[in-house]
Design a binder for these strands. Structure first.
Lengths: 349, 349
DNA sequence: TCCAAGAATGTGTGCGCTAACAATTCGTCA
DNA sequence: TGACGAATTGTTAGCGCACACATTCTTGGA
């Protein structure tokens, strides 16, 4: 293909008139290289357009500067953002990121992804795969593979970085209750997701704490606008529902749409609150009150945690610290989709 | 850290009672290995939990099985999907994918990303960075780096895989014209994006072909719902506008919202068509008629193109073929957001 | 029975780099 | 001026694997 082979360290050494080891020293910022020598070497490097061979370095040092990311579906807003945050942070530490997407979330796929990444020789892995099954499978991974789970809820055996789902759900639920709603219905995410479970728990806890009745949560949704829509049609027919907390924004969108089609007004007839604060929620009809989670930050924090475990000699971070769970507080973004109920049935203020 | 070192080929060889070379043969599916020997080797591999050292293999073979992806913003729907498609396809060919996200799109960032990837020794690069600036910068990359641009419009000097933006825009525009609109307004994407340019060209061509007046396109938007919203407020005040073709779905969402707030009904008063067909468009209010592009497929095709250039010996694909541009036809997805104009001002059918 | 051709396996070497150690140079103080 | 220690540079030996070649073992036909 290409005429001549890429220059190697020996070539640089010859041109600079030094030994290859000196070149290595310059490239790795070792002390005890005379300034003049260093400059000669760097000049030679530039002249040749030399670039070190990563594989050779890896082989010699027995350590890679690449990290793996396993992601269930990078197409979803949250995972996509987290991936972005991870990559950003990795760059700062001078690590590469290789991704392994898994199509389905059975144990096998997940373990398979772990395997592929290990074959490539990654130094550690961040998992964006918030399902219970995935987490279960991950528990079987040999402990010599540094592993951090991100956005997967906090109740896992793994080192994890996550938003505080329960607190977020509590925020949303309390907000609706404060508005004067007698109770708040909940459009569940898929129960196989830890986030969904935790949000449900937070919702339930908030209700119970306030002594509000706890209605049966609306189950069977899968995070998509489509299932939100389907539930919305049913809710529209139920005059008892005045407030709905949706486990994510996509479903809220579908719900909003169904209610609108059925002639139920939001927020006048029914208040809706979502979760995630994806970029477009502000422009839903009406703009959606939702719980914001900073996915970017989540990704970054996950990477930091991983680096900390891997132990980056260049950053002076000890390879020791054990920090099982990092929890990031979410915040409520108030927009137009929720308000006080029109016909207050009790407790007039 | 871990007590003993990972097993190497020699360990396997010893246990299986063969030479390391035979182990290598088994692992690389070479012919001329007796079945019994192969089994002994594989048993030893399993027993030891041996996994080949990728770095060593790379060093010895002088070729990596990793590909790089440069992406401007994996947070957007399109790029996220393409990345997913790329990873999927890469896995089939047994390649790894490492991502390099760039925050801004100046030449420097892009070239920087290329550099990082080359340092890591990737065999080739897929670029998801549809801006003119990026493409310009890429033209400077040494030609010995296999490079494929994806979703960046077709008018580039690079090997590219893209949806046919002009055809898609034509589809949308003609559809609105066929409905009876006198003309179609266009909410432009950012002019620095090739997709935006091509969509504008397609819109303009369709209009001219039909002899319809060509209004000044609505400029200054940036793909986000926010700018779509801003333009929407202005459009709402303009009774002359009966049909709008938006350069993407996000902007269409903002537009829809603004129109609704202003009391203009869609599609009765104004018809709207988008571009992309992202997952939620069906649940916009009203559900959006849009031009679908199959991002996933785009990503997969890009990867195939790259593999073809890189030349994968294991797949029997020759390292020769030059295929500058691959264009994928888009399709129109008809939903509720567009209809015939209410007050037809001319050409009664 | 023997030999040639081919199948099956083993041996040696180098990929490009870093780590450990050896050798050299330099400065400085007695 | 000489010598000693620190700073600087060079030398050697792998890291784990695949390739080229050498060697041994099977066949099958004369």
């Amino acid at each position: 293909m290409d005429g001549e082979r890429a220059p190697v360290m020996a070539d640089v050494a010859r041109i600079a008139g030094v030994s290859h080891q000196t070149v290595s020293r310059v490239l790795n910022d070792h002390p005890n290289v005379r300034d003049r020598t260093r400059e000669r070497v760097l000049a030679a490097v530039r002249e040749l357009g030399y670039r070190p061979n990563a594989a050779a370095r890896t082989l010699a040092t027995r350590r890679t500067r690449t990290l793996g990311v396993i992601s269930f579906n990078t197409t979803l807003y949250g995972p996509a953002c987290m991936l972005y945050g991870i990559e950003q942070a990795a760059r700062e530490y001078d690590y590469f990121v290789t991704v392994a997407a898994v199509g389905t979330l059975d144990r096998r796929s997940v373990l398979d992804a772990v395997d592929r990444l290990r074959n490539q020789g990654v130094a550690g892995i961040v998992v964006i795969a918030p399902q219970t099954a995935a987490v279960g499978a991950l528990a079987n991974v040999p402990k010599d593979v540094p592993l951090v789970a991100v956005g997967c809820g906090a109740h896992t055996a793994l080192v994890s970085v996550a938003v505080d789902n329960e607190a977020g759900a509590g925020l949303a639920t309390s907000y609706l209750l404060d508005l004067g709603h007698r109770t708040v219905h909940h459009l569940l995410g898929p129960r196989t997701w830890l986030d969904a479970q935790e949000r449900e728990a937070g919702w339930r806890a908030a209700l119970e704490k306030r002594g509000a009745p706890v209605p049966e949560p609306l189950a069977g949704a899968d995070w998509t606008a489509r299932t939100g829509y389907e539930h919305g049609r049913r809710i529209a027919d139920d005059p008892g529902v005045t407030a709905v907390f949706c486990a994510n924004d996509h479903m809220a969108l579908g719900l909003l749409r169904a209610l609108q089609q059925a002639g139920r007004r939001v927020p006048e007839d029914i208040s809706v609150v979502g979760f995630d604060d994806m970029a477009e929620t502000e422009y839903f009809g009406p703009s959606l009150t939702t719980v914001r989670q900073d996915f970017d930050e989540l990704g970054r924090r996950a990477l930091h945690a991983l680096i900390e475990i891997v132990g980056d000699p260049d950053s002076g971070i000890p390879a020791s610290g054990r920090r099982p769970h990092i929890v990031i507080p979410p915040s409520l973004v108030v927009r137009a989709s929720a308000t006080r109920p029109r016909h207050r049935t009790e407790s007039p203020t």
